[in-house]
Simulated assay, not measured.
Amino acid sequence: MGMSSINTNMAAMTALQSLQQTSKEMLTTQNRISTGLKVGSAADNAAYWSIATTMRSDNDALSTVQDALGLGKGTVNVAYTAMNSSIDLVSKIKTKLVAAAAPGVDRAKIQSEIGELQKQLKGIADSASFSGENWLSVDSSATGFNATKSIISSFTRSASGAVSVGSISVNTQSSVLFDASTATSATGGILDAKRDSTGAIGGTAGASIYSMDISALTDSTTDQATLNSYIAGADAAFQEMTKAATSLGANQQRIDLQTDFISALRDSITSGISQLVDADMNQESTRLQALQVKQQLGVQALSIANQSSQNILSLFRG
């Protein structure tokens, strides 16, 4: 039988230590339930906390990439919509030029219709701006101009921890409809560049789709040749714009695919972080109930242990 002492109550000390440990475990479990996290700070698990913190930061960066892709998509969509509308107008101009080739027609009246279409083309190109970016009406001689546009598309971290930002490059050179540059080497855009008799963009000779005027043309052989060159130019511009619209459409699709990928990647990273730091609420609720029972038993055990000193007192009663 162990020694009984009024100075040192070993049973009470053991019961108290057990009760303190139970209370500590309950506090941890209650914190997990209230925060939903099993790793809420570096003190809980330094490795997991460090990994989760880095992954959260990278996920925030990917959120910014999503925003950048949305901005880039908006710019491409505006350019494509304007290009598509311009294609319809150029097709109408070509149709009217073909009608003007018939002998005896009033070409001045036809030109009045073409003139309105030309103004509309300019208006569409100038208004095709999104967040200050206009890819259809430019000034290639402006300081800092670059026909190749970059759209932020990715954020990656290598195994060594180095980070890098990726981008989608969109070459808008073939999409320019109007170029305000006065540089000697500048030929203009698809609609304001001068075209030769075959419809090809040339130097200073010929007329552009935007500036052509048939009001003074007659049925003479020379004027008919000029009219035919205008038709060839309108058709060439139509083909060039169709090709440009196809390129913009391909860029739209690529941006959509990248946006979907980034969204799925962010979901995967969030799921990975959850596996590291989130608490299993079913497990924690079960553990809390067990600890509550254990705490009650600990309180009773401590109460019983504290009664041992009173038992010693009874030995000295007469």
Rank of each mutant, 00 (worst) to 15 (best):
G40D: 09
G40K: 13
S41G: 09
S41L: 08
A42H: 11
A42E: 13
A43L: 14
A43P: 04
D44C: 08
D44H: 13
N45C: 03
N45L: 05
A46D: 14
A46N: 14
A46S: 15
A46G: 13
A46R: 15
Y48D: 14
W49R: 09
S50V: 05
I51Q: 03
I51F: 05
T53F: 06
T54V: 15
T54G: 13
T54F: 12
T54W: 12
M55G: 01
M55C: 00
R56T: 15
S57Y: 11
S57N: 15
D58K: 09
D60N: 13
D60I: 12
A61R: 15
A61Y: 14
L62K: 14
S63N: 13
T64C: 02
T64M: 13
T64P: 00
T64N: 08
V65S: 03
Q66A: 03
Q66E: 11
Q66K: 10
D67K: 11
D67A: 14
L69Q: 06
G70T: 09
L71F: 10
L71H: 06
L71P: 02
L71E: 08
G72F: 05
G72P: 06
G72S: 10
G72W: 07
K73P: 05
K73V: 03
K73E: 14
G74H: 11
G74A: 12
G74Q: 13
T75G: 14
V76R: 02
V76F: 08
V76N: 06
N77E: 15
V78P: 05
V78F: 07
V78K: 11
V78C: 07
Y80W: 06
T81F: 06
T81H: 08
A82E: 01
A82W: 02
A82H: 01
M83L: 07
M83F: 05
M83T: 13
M83H: 04
S85H: 10
S85C: 12
S85K: 11
S85D: 15
S86I: 08
S86G: 12
I87L: 11
I87F: 11
I87D: 08
D88Y: 04
D88T: 14
L89R: 09
L89W: 03
V90A: 05
S91M: 08
K94G: 06
K94A: 09
T95I: 10
K96V: 08
K96Q: 09
L97Q: 01
L97W: 02
V98E: 12
V98Q: 08
V98H: 06
V98A: 09
A99E: 14
A99I: 11
A99S: 12
A100V: 11
A100T: 09
A100M: 13
A101R: 01
A101W: 00
A102P: 00
P103M: 10
P103A: 12
G104C: 08
G104T: 02
V105D: 01
V105Y: 00
V105C: 04
V105R: 00
V105G: 03
V105M: 05
D106R: 00
A108G: 05
A108I: 00
K109G: 10
K109W: 00
I110Q: 03
I110H: 00
S112F: 01
E113N: 07
E113Q: 13
I114C: 04
I114H: 00
